[in-house]
Computed example of a mutant assay.
Amino acid sequence: MRYFLIITLMALTSLTESLFGQVKINGNLKALGNSSVLIQYYEGNISKSVNLKVTDGKFSWEAPVTEAQKITMIFPGRAIYLFIEPGNINITGSRDSLEQLKITGSKINDEALAYAKTMKVFEEEQKPLLLQYGKLAGEEKTALEEKLADIVSRKNTAANDYIAAHGQSAFSLNLVTEYSRLGNYEDVLRMYGLLSKKMKSTAEGQRIAERLVILKRSAAGEKIMDFTKKDDKGNPVSIAAFKGKYVYIDFWASWCAPCRREIPNLIKTYNTFKDHNFTVVSVSLDDPTDKDRWLAALTSLKMPWTQLADLKGWDDEIRLYYGFNAVPSTLLLDPNGTIIAKDLRGVALDKKLKELFL
């Protein structure tokens, strides 16, 4: 009897592992033919990728995935995201309409699709405003930016409300992950606090905790990292040289179209407040191959403030320290080198500077 019980328990353990510690995806897509699909995912805290062979539009993948997660599937010429969890998942549809794929067997993916529908109201509000953005100036542009900021604020509130109501959800966990990529410390910490202990203890929850450590470095009240970089003439310049002034550090790159579009606005802001103990320092994230383009951009854009660059691209030590995942990114410092705001631009930046000086 004892041996029978041991064998039974072993069988049950094996069955449990196969059901709850393994994911299996079967795909059958029209117009995919004989090609390949690349899947990027996590096994615990280890980032992995696997290249699957596709035969007549069919492919299959199994992996020891114990926690629900968002993965990337890269088809020839196109990538999609979907949520998976342990169990059997089926994907059907066509390579020509990946946004309409039918995915069954993943409750978290169903949850993600339902959430996306609730967010469409915000997207519909934004679309016509974004189409006008480059066509307006002066008070009209200011009013437009305020409308866009209000939509973003309401969207963030909706996300917080969702996480608060679904703290046990792996989809809520991923929402916090997404906000942590570009968000600020205070907002991400608030969202993280809404998650259950179970979600915080997952591998993804631990990655968010590690991200929060990095985000805290750029939180209001933190001192700026002491750094020295060369200017466009090759002279070393220390950020400490600007102590005693309010300093707006603009992290940008010559290849970044949104960065370049914002510079005329920043020049106006600079000219408005430069006599109020305020200055701007641009830090380029161009790499060595972009040096000529960077210098050409400085000539064409005519920015009347200090330009710094190590030309290390995304390996720039300041970018790595603060964990910026996109440009433009900005920091506003007080005269003591203390960070007082992050990622202020346009109307929001002008409003903050008026509070400080006027």
Rank of each mutant, 00 (worst) to 15 (best):
Y185T: 00
L356I: 12
I89E: 00
E204M: 10
K229H: 15
A149W: 02
D231T: 13
L333N: 00
M10H: 06
S284C: 01
H166G: 10
A79G: 07
K197Q: 05
P76K: 01
Q307A: 12
E43G: 00
T299P: 00
A341R: 09
S180V: 12
A114F: 14
S172T: 07
S284A: 13
D56G: 05
T55A: 03
G44P: 03
V327D: 08
L131G: 03
Y162P: 01
A297P: 07
S36L: 04
F242Q: 08
Y162R: 13
S329C: 13
T8M: 06
N235R: 07
A143Q: 12
K53T: 12
G57P: 01
I89G: 03
K312A: 11
I25H: 09
L344I: 15
D287T: 09
D226S: 12
K354C: 04
G337D: 00
K197V: 02
G346I: 10
N174D: 09
S254T: 07
N174F: 13
L298M: 07
L136E: 04
L130S: 14
L144I: 06
A257Y: 12
K135L: 03
D232P: 07
T72D: 10
G234A: 04
D292S: 05
S169T: 09
I208N: 13
N28P: 06
N90A: 15
L52V: 00
A165F: 00
P86G: 06
T338Q: 04
M10F: 14
N265Y: 11
I46F: 05
D150E: 13
R2V: 15
I318C: 09
I249L: 13
A240I: 03
V237G: 04
A63Q: 06
K30E: 13
E204H: 09
L356D: 06
I163A: 09
E62K: 11
T299E: 01
I339D: 00
K155S: 13
P304G: 08
A240M: 01
E43C: 05
I340E: 00
D310R: 06
S300Y: 11
K155Q: 11
V152T: 14
P288G: 09
D231I: 15
A341P: 08
V237N: 02
E146W: 06
F83M: 12
F20P: 00
Y115W: 14
E317G: 12
G323S: 00
N26I: 04
G27Q: 01
K58C: 00
R217I: 12
K198M: 03
R211P: 10
L182K: 06
W255G: 09
K216P: 05
I25A: 09
E317S: 15
D334V: 13
A257K: 03
A112H: 08
I151G: 10
D343S: 04
L5E: 05
N160S: 11
G313I: 02
E210G: 08
Q100F: 12
N90I: 08
D161F: 07
N160P: 01
G323N: 14
A220T: 13
V188L: 08
